[in-house]
Design a protein around this nucleic acid. Structure first.
Lengths: 248, 248
DNA sequence: TAAATCTAACGCTAAAGAGTGTGAACTTGT
DNA sequence: ACAAGTTCACACTCTTTAGCGTTAGATTTA
């Protein structure tokens, strides 16, 4: 339904009800949900699409996108992590995919500001979990702000895994300032930094520069990235690992 | 079933299976659960009770105990909180009862290190949630340790609500050192400090002193506390509020 | 004011989840 | 080595929960 609103730009309630063969009440409920997630705007009689820049940074959307790629990247990243070491990661869905596999490399110390990852890892035996506090942001389901940056700066981990929404030949980018600050702090507090991005992020830019690519020791992309894009990254002396995507 | 193990001290598997009219398999599963929560010890053929001091500090036990009293205290404490102010509370089940009612006094800034409360409050509109990070302790379902103390010390809130496992005429007590350190830090960072304890905690002591009762501005107890115990607290110039318990 | 739209409440259905038992395979202690 | 005890995997039942529609009442717009 979200996709339809996106395509049309603006649709009426009754129209949506007919298309999806559901009652008007259901359309209301679903749109309320999408609106609370920042995916669409509601007005009397219908709903309109949000600017792409705002909903792309939204969890509900990010979770469903490029799952196969993220899964492949996650498996590769987990292979880079040694049992007994410490890992820090941010509030990206790619990192969440990594978190799902961390139970395989125990014992491990895990540090994150991502509430969903905390929920996921809290009951896992063999994982010493450290949460980064801060102000809770519902749109990201994570803790950000000054308190979080301070908490990051008080720590040091063997491996830091971050993902950003855009990567050019020279820099990693992200739209939101609060998140940029946290990611930067994380990069500064990791012995080894891994940038994990799927191919849709390559050759793009966003509002804020997070860091130059030199700040990362390893860049992991999925195998659906164009060969020449990978080559271009490698040309600038980066170690670029390609994770093989298996599923459709 | 836990109660039966407590009373008997030590019971065999088959005995438990007969008493509760369930299969031995189920007994195994339930005891595994209780053991993982630290309520009992398992050995080949049966299970034995834990020392009371260890299981009393355990969430699974604390959650089921004195719910009516905690509910009454919680309602009273919420009445002390003004909309628009900030509240910090610890990882006590009493505080959790308070958290359940915080949606009624929005807008509000809430600070806690208790994961269950974070889960509970994250989706509540009108609540600005700040999490205190730190090392995750499964037995308390909260974040403790140096990182947590540092995070607390970096903040200041209008009201601090804490509960302790024992209260004498002069001091508040708790068994665990990590928790004591966090509670102390909280007391130091609140403009107004509230001690919320049900009547079973009165006239008791535990291993560590948390703070003298003078450190608290208000002490809230439930109406099942003996009158003379309340009077004794009041004699020492404390403001003691009594929350009326309604349910059985 | 009338028509349209929105919200809240209730009950229904289908899917998900928790809890349990059975039998086979494995472990431990005597 | 054998018996008692334990664990695992699977299937079954029961409870819980999420999602949808209908109706009735409130709100908004023309």
């Amino acid at each position: 339904m979200a996709e339809h609103v996106m395509r049309q730009g603006s649709v009426s309630m009754t129209e949506l009800a007919e298309i999806f063969e559901v009652s008007v009440m259901t359309v209301h409920r679903d749109l309320d949900l999408l609106e609370s997630q920042g995916m669409v705007r509601k007005f009397r009689g219908g709903a309109s699409a949000q600017a792409s820049s705002v909903f792309e940074s939204n969890i509900a959307y990010r979770k469903t996108a490029q799952t196969a790629e993220k899964e492949a990247i996650a498996r590769h990243v987990v292979g880079l992590i040694e049992p007994g070491s410490s890992v820090m990661f941010d509030d990206s869905t790619t990192a969440l995919a990594v978190a799902r596999h961390l139970g395989e490399v125990t014992p491990l110390t895990v540090v994150t500001n991502f509430l969903e990852a905390i929920r996921l890892l809290a009951p896992v035996p063999g994982i010493r979990l450290m949460a980064l506090g801060g102000e809770y942001y519902p749109t990201h389901d994570s803790f950000l702000g000054v308190a979080c940056v301070d908490a990051v700066e008080a720590m040091n981990t063997d491996t830091v895994v971050v993902s950003t929404s855009a990567v050019s030949d020279r820099h990693a980018f992200h739209q939101e300032q609060e998140i940029v600050l946290v990611k930067r702090a994380m990069l500064a507090s990791g012995t080894r930094c891994v940038l994990a991005v799927d191919h849709t992020k390559l050759d793009r830019v966003a509002l804020h520069r997070v860091a130059p690519l030199e700040a990362f020791d390893i860049i992991v992309v999925d195998s659906r990235a164009p060969e020449e894009a990978i080559q271009r990254l490698r040309d600038r002396h980066h170690r670029v690992d390609v994770a093989e995507v298996t599923e459709p």
